[in-house]
Nucleic acid binder design. Structure first.
Lengths: 336, 336
DNA sequence: TTGAAAGCGCTAACAG
DNA sequence: CTGTTAGCGCTTTCAA
């Protein structure tokens, strides 16, 4: 696989490599004619500049690294879509790694990306990540860094999140206004800020309105559908009185809960209302359609990428980090 | 952002760069003791090898480039997940681009990836791609290349697909066996092999069993949910007799069709049965749960990545290209 | 307007 | 076992 280089072009044209380099990068000091001829020859030889060499030389690449827990989840996939679009427009490419929710793999992903000398990093932390020193090392190294969705509070870096607390709060208000009184919550690991904030927002709303959340109806599990099935099972197993409404930390969890309730023949929303968080595209296709809080996933991706690219370009690494908080939207359907 | 290099380590240790290079890459000719000391110092200085320099030197990188139409679709996201996992295990990273179903962008994505000197390319072609010369140029260049899902028949490269014809055929058989007799099809652009094969498989099955597909009930549109809504609208607008069962080219299209039927108050499956293709996770959560043909998306991603990496490693580029055909599975639920 | 030369960080002969 | 050296493809002073 012999690749055409600038040198090949130079030789064939009888000029020096610097002339070719300049011609191809639009340097003003090159005569119109030489440039035309060089461009033509480059096309003819199917020349593609070697970005590796260029990056090595300039000590900076046009690649942004992304670390997400799982690409296949709709939420992250949409974010990736936003990141990829913004990157493309700005002349960047994206290198993607998934941590599969594993701390060690997250660290090793970052190492790999660093070795590729990415210009900056976009990170959403794994559920199993309990320490932030690997992130702080990045800061020290001066690598531009933006967290999105699952952020790490101990690290002084820009973040892009939705207003989880507010979204959950409004979910709580809505349920109380709808007449529900006995609330449960299917939550995620408290270490994750999104889980903590959604829990707190909901808890504060319902307790402020006189219907405090009962501890035994707060179930903590994972963030996916199977976890929802599981958490709902644990809730039902308690026997005795049941909540008349549960707020779930994510849509997949809510859908899992719905599956479990259907198995038990418990009517939704009549005997138990269910609310989710995210607004997956399937949310309005299931039965009953899911009442939820919409997060603008694609926008999160765009915003995070924009922020990162801005930091890369301005080298504004020392400026006070921005924290973007995107608005959520209450989507009322049938399940609550 | 000053990065530690092999040279810094060499200077601090009072040895030559080659010694450091060898120590760090596990060369046998280095004494155990020197290696230990070098490794320790490297860690202390937070050294990360510069992959760019290495790739430039070796004239080959450990990056695989992926071009997909849209990352946010569950099917592609799952594939990406498989690709990313296999790549990680084999010491590769993945660079991802999305064509957004646009031909020009697809070409430019490939150029970018080529400039980054990716070791190989994984491609699923966009719906608007009507020519394959850009792929053939890749072949000439000797870039290892594997197509997945949406392949390009005119290019002599390995492919990973599911047995679309067979899956669709069995869908047709199933519907006939179930007692349906008047069949329609909501399909995609014929240029895409997946669309053509699914159409042909279904058509052959039902006609062989004595219930030929009627031309006016074959609607061609896009592949997403909104396209499904649209295609079903066009079908219903015809008035007169209606099919009692439609087979849709993808799950999203089927779900769109379902939405439209619900709006019209047409009961599924009683007045019209609907079948999809893919088995999205939401397929069994909607009402009625969707009968469909499952494609092993994650496996497609894994297989394609494995094939590509094998080709990269063996440089078996000239060998006869393999065509992997993964099996589909009929998933019977309520919608048909 | 063009060329010569150095160097980005790394590996790999070749030589000791 | 370790050092010297050349060179991967490119940009960029400095000089002509």
């Amino acid at each position: 696989m012999k690749q055409t280089t600038i040198k090949d072009i130079a030789r064939k044209m009888g000029v020096s490599v610097s002339t070719v380099s300049r011609a191809l990068s639009g340097h003003p000091d090159i005569s119109e004619e030489t440039r035309k001829r060089i461009e033509a020859l480059a096309r003819e030889l199917d020349y593609h500049p070697n970005t590796l060499a260029k990056s090595l030389q300039q000590k900076q690449s046009q690649v942004i690294g992304v670390v997400v827990p799982q690409v296949k989840h709709y939420f992250f996939a949409s974010i990736m879509s936003g990141v990829t679009d913004v990157a493309y427009q700005a002349g960047f490419t994206v290198m993607i790694c998934q941590s599969n929710e594993d701390f060690e793999r997250e660290k090793s992903n970052i190492d790999v990306l660093l070795s590729h000398r990415v210009a900056g990093l976009l990170i959403s932390v794994s559920v199993t990540t309990k320490s932030c020193e690997h992130f702080n090392r990045l800061k020290q190294r001066g690598v531009p860094l933006v967290f999105f969705d699952r952020v790490c509070g101990e690290v002084d870096a820009p973040t892009v999140v939705v207003d989880d607390y507010d979204g959950a709060f409004r979910a709580g208000e809505y349920l109380v206004r709808k007449g529900y009184r006995r609330f449960g919550h299917l939550g995620g690991p408290e270490f994750l800020s999104i889980c903590r904030l959604r829990f707190e927002g909901f808890r504060d709303a319902v307790s402020r309105l006189g219907c405090p959340l009962r501890d035994e109806w707060v179930i903590r599990g994972g963030l996916n559908e199977e976890d929802g099935v599981d958490s709902m099972s644990r809730l039902l197993k308690q026997g005795g009185e049941r909540p008349d409404a549960v707020f779930c930390v994510t849509d997949p969890v809510a859908m899992g809960a719905l599956v479990r309730l259907k198995q038990e023949g418990i009517a939704v929303p009549d005997r138990m209302a269910v609310m989710g968080f995210t607004d997956n595209p399937m949310a309005d296709l299931i039965e009953p359609p899911l009442t939820t809080v919409r997060q603008p996933a694609y926008e999160i991706g765009r915003t995070a990428a924009e922020l990162l690219i801005e930091r890369i370009s301005n080298r504004s690494g020392d400026a006070h980090p921005v924290h973007k908080i995107l608005k959520t939207e209450l989507i009322i359907r049938k399940s609550a």
